[in-house]
Amino acid sequence: MIKDQIKKIYKAKIINTEKVSTNSYYIEIDCNKEIEAKAGQFVSIYCEGLTFRRPFSIFTNNKGKIGILYKERGKGTKYIKSLKKGESIDISGPLGNSFSIKNCKSLLIGAGIGTAPISFLKSKLENENIENIFIAGFLNKNEIPKLINPNIIYTDDGSFGKKGNVLSDTEEIIKKYKPEIIYGCGPEIVLKKISELGERYNIETQISLEKLMACSIGVCRGCVIDIKHGTKTVNASVCKDGPVFWGNEVIWQ
């Protein structure tokens, strides 16, 4: 049996930082060790003075280098923003499961900063020549991060791309494009709708969930959600059993 990529803590070096929209940033970290992350996996970052490490999806992975895209929210992200190129950072990963890649027509949906892991997924699909469309949605033009790679962009206020939310035309796209799998990441309301669409059109869905994490490696049971397992409801941890789940397994609150 091949052992999964070992999770390690890297006192790593920041090799790149960039502001990519009004409120989001890109940071690239050299872990000084070969890492092979899968799309959907995440890393956790220690932020000085805070008890919980902060989880972020992997956005790029090039040999030993990991890039993340983050939106400034509170103390943790403010701390990460304060770090400069050349400084060191305490990062651990890759953590969690990953999107199941299938060799079939794929529809990718990302909303807000949820476009980060979806962008990574798209580049993986492209490496394997898997046909796909990536649609992304944002509040407005200023929130669109520079480095993402969607095919179609929606903004709520119409300031860029199509006007509307990311799911405005999804039903038509499904009917026309006929995807065999849909992947999604973004606010829970969007993910819930994606899984409902999947059930309505009988298409598999894979969604990436977020939940506050303490340990982020599956030991504290702080991040569990209810999952359908046959006829039973069971606990699943978002950090280890997830963050990616089949849409039809999730019991929405």
């Binding site: 506050l212 303490a214 504290c220 049971r221 991040c223």
Partner: peptide, 19 residues
């Protein structure tokens, strides 16, 4: 199975758990 409601919170100097 543990508790159903939110199980963890971070505080200024540690955390609260209700696993």
């Amino acid at each position: 199975e543990g508790n159903k409601h939110t199980r963890i919170a971070e505080t200024e100097a540690g955390m609260i758990n209700s696993i």
